[in-house]
């Protein structure tokens, strides 16, 4: 029964939708990781930008202008993290934890100040990014039902997989990012400023994550609710790590986690206790990471055993 449900085009359509925010954040994580910094602040950035999306789209009464400003804000948070880590020499993990904790409290405070409510942004008339149907594709059986009628940002996220891939592997800046992440000394010995590269990477990382944040409250849902990022930033970290920090790999693993999220959404309607069902995406992540580490360990053993 569940298998039938999973193979239905409706489910796959929902899975793709659930994948979108994770995918944006996973791409953000991949770029940061390629430059040699783990961006653990993704969770906080998602939450912040989910709120900013609601506020700015309402302020401009335009979803697109709201998205643009939200992306700038996301970039700023990424830049701020870089500033803490590179200039003030804070530990990257600690700085990220600080940003995540601040996000928890500050979003509630800002929401309260703007809307007078501390739980949900119902009183803000925010504008969301619409869904669109794809001409021609929508008429293909099965595939049409899966791919068409998605949010524009879902399509953008898929395009981003390609763009980030091109950026990392086909441009000089991408080459330098990878060089800095892999051997900082080598990059510096030929005159590349590793700090500069990391500032750029973390800023781009923030911008990408902010698109995921905007989607959460302006596409996936139509409102901001407190804590709505719900661990997706951390799931994305796992996704990009398991995907070898490549855009394509991150995409594939994000699909898996998005799928788990979608299953959990469906099962909540059933008879299983919903606490158990809600655990699914996180349990999938944990099991996925475990299997990934195990296979890596085996590979290492094979290599050293020689």
């Amino acid at each position: 029964m569940i298998v039938d449900a999973i193979l239905s085009p409706e489910f796959l359509n929902a899975a793709l939708r659930a994948t979108t925010p994770i995918l944006f954040a996973a791409l953000a994580s991949a770029i940061a990781a390629k430059s040699g910094v783990i961006n653990m602040a993704l969770e906080g950035i998602l939450l912040f930008t989910a709120l900013f999306g609601v506020i700015f789209s309402s302020a401009f009464q335009s979803a697109w202008l709201g998205l643009l400003v939200t992306m700038v804000m996301g970039g700023l948070i990424g830049f701020l993290l870089a500033f803490f880590v590179l200039r003030l020499k804070t530990d990257a993990i600690l700085a990220a934890i600080a940003i995540n904790l601040i996000a928890d409290g500050a979003t509630i405070l800002i929401l309260l100040a703007v809307s007078g409510d501390r739980g949900i942004s119902s009183s803000i008339n925010s504008i969301i990014i619409p869904r669109i149907t794809l001409p021609i594709i929508e008429n293909i059986p099965f595939i049409g039902a899966v791919l068409s009628n998605q949010n524009i940002l879902t399509y953008v996220s898929l395009i981003m997989v390609v763009l980030v891939h091109i950026f990392l592997y086909k441009t000089p800046l991408g080459l330098q990012i990878r060089a800095v992440g892999e051997n900082k000394d080598a990059a510096e010995s030929v005159g590349i400023s590793s700090d500069k590269i990391r500032y750029i990477s973390l800023t781009i990382s923030g911008v990408l994550a902010s698109m995921g944040g905007f989607f959460l409250s302006g596409g996936y849902m139509t409102r901001f609710t407190t804590g709505m990022s719900a661990g997706r930033g951390f799931i994305a970290l796992a996704a990009s790590a398991m995907g070898g920090n490549t855009p394509i790999g991150s995409f594939l693993v994000s699909l898996l986690f998005g799928g788990a999220q979608a299953i959990s959404n469906i099962l909540q309607l059933g008879t299983l206790p919903h606490e158990l069902v809600q655990m699914l995406p996180y349990a999938t992540t944990l099991i996925g990471l475990g299997l990934y580490s195990y296979s890596k360990m085996k590979k290492r053993q094979r290599l050293t055993g020689k």
Binding site: T171, P172, G174, L175, Q176, A179, N183, A187, S189
Partner: peptide, 26 residues
């Protein structure tokens, strides 16, 4: 060695002074 292992020989040689195409791509 000051080399980046996952890059090709050519990429390592030009690293930092990469030739460009359309002023955007390597």
């Amino acid at each position: 060695f000051m080399l980046v292992p996952s890059l090709t020989v050519a990429e390592n040689i030009v690293l930092g002074v990469e030739p460009k195409k359309n002023s955007l791509f390597t």
